[in-house]
Design a protein around this nucleic acid. Sequence first.
DNA 1: GCCTATATTCAACCGCTGTTGAAATGAGGA
DNA 2: TCCTCATTTCAACAGCGGTTGAATATAGGC
Lengths: 202, 202
Amino acid sequence: MVEPKPATRSRGRRGAGADTKAALLDAAKAVFAELGYDNATVRMIAARADVDPAMVNHWFGGKQRLFAAAVLELPVNPFDLLDGLMDGPDEELGERMVRLFLTIWDTDGGRMPALVRSITQQEAAANAIRDLFVNHIVEPLVRRLGSDQSALRATLCGSQMVGLGMMRYVLKFEPLASTDREALVAAVAPNLQRYLTGSLEG
Amino acid sequence: MVEPKPATRSRGRRGAGADTKAALLDAAKAVFAELGYDNATVRMIAARADVDPAMVNHWFGGKQRLFAAAVLELPVNPFDLLDGLMDGPDEELGERMVRLFLTIWDTDGGRMPALVRSITQQEAAANAIRDLFVNHIVEPLVRRLGSDQSALRATLCGSQMVGLGMMRYVLKFEPLASTDREALVAAVAPNLQRYLTGSLEG
DNA sequence: GCCTATATTCAACCGCTGTTGAAATGAGGA
DNA sequence: TCCTCATTTCAACAGCGGTTGAATATAGGC
C-alpha cells in the first residue's frame, strides 16, 4: 500500500498551473475569517493552501503583509459604492446601505468577516474600517445630504453596522444570525436612516 | 546609593496587608480591558500587581480562570438591573437602557470594556454577553412588554449596544468616543426604543 | 520559642509561532 | 543539451507565554 498523499513532497519549481500566490490568498481569507488575525497561524494557512509555510514570506514578506493583501485590499472601489448608494431617493438611503453591506458580507468569501473579527487584534483592521466605512463612505454621504454633525452621524452608523456584523458573522447570536437578509434590512434600515437624516436630540 | 526598588525580592510569606489576590484581580481587569484576553500576558498582569507570575496559578489556577474571576463574574445582580430598567414609562425604556449601560461601562474599572474587547478572543466572553445582556436582560424585558419576536428584538438591541461599546471603548473612533454621555443617550435611545417596541417591518 | 502550614520567588520547561538561510529541483532560454 | 535562476522544501533558530516544581522565608498556633 502506497501512501496516497506523500507527506513530504519533492523540492523545486512546480508546474505553471500551481499558482501558489493565489492559493495562499484564498486560504488566508478563509482562515483569517474564521479565527481572526492573532489566532490564525502561518502554518495553518500554508497547510490549507497545501504549501510550505516559508512561501508566505517568499510571496508576501510575512504574516502582516499577507493579511494586508488578503483582507485589507478591497476588491471594490469606494467611489463606486458611494455612487451606488446615492442612486435613489434619500429616504431609502438607510435601506440601500444595510442591503449593500449585508450582501457584500454574505458573498465575498469571508473578507469582511475577517476584517470584523480582526478588528480588536490588528490596528490595521481598525484603520481599514475607519477609512473605508466611516471616512470614505458614510461621512461623504452624510455631508452630501446636508445633515449637521456629519462625523458623529457617520460613527453612529458605523456602530450599528459593526455591531450587526459582529452579531451575525462573528458571534452568530440567534436568531439574528440566520434571519433572512431582507427581513434584517427592514428591521435595521429605519434606524440607520435616522442616524443619517433624523434628529439626534431627544 | 541603594536601589529604591530591589529588582529581586526575598521569598517567603508576606505581611497580612499584602492582599495578593485582590491586587491580581485589579491588575487583571485593567490589563484585560486595555489589551483583550489574548494580548494580555500573565507576566504583564503579575508585573502590574507587583507579584510573581506564578501567583496567578497559585491563587486562580491559570490565566483562563483569572479572566473568569476578574471579568466574567459580574458585581451586579441581573435581576436588579432588570428591575431598575422597568422602573419608569415604557416609552423611555430605550433611554434608560443606553444610559444605564454607558454609565456602567464608564465607571466599573474596565470590566465591561475588557468583556467587549475580548469578545472575539474568548468563547467565554461571548457567552457572558449573550447570557447577561441578551438572555437575562433584554429578552425578558421585551417579553414583559408584550412585543412579538422577543428574541430577534433582543439580539438587535445587542447589536446596537455591542457596536456602541466597540466604537466608544475599543476602537475609540471620534467624535463618538468623546461625545458627552447624555448626548449619546439622546442620539441612540430612539433607535433602541424602536427595536424594543416599534414595528420591525418596513 | 518552636513547628508547621502557607505564601512567595526563582529557574526552568515545553510547546508554539514567525521567520530565515541553505539546499534541492525543475522550467525555460541559449 | 546545458545553464541559469525562480520556485519550493527542509531544518533550524530565537523568542515568547503559560505553567510547574523546588527552594525559601514568614506567619500564626501550640
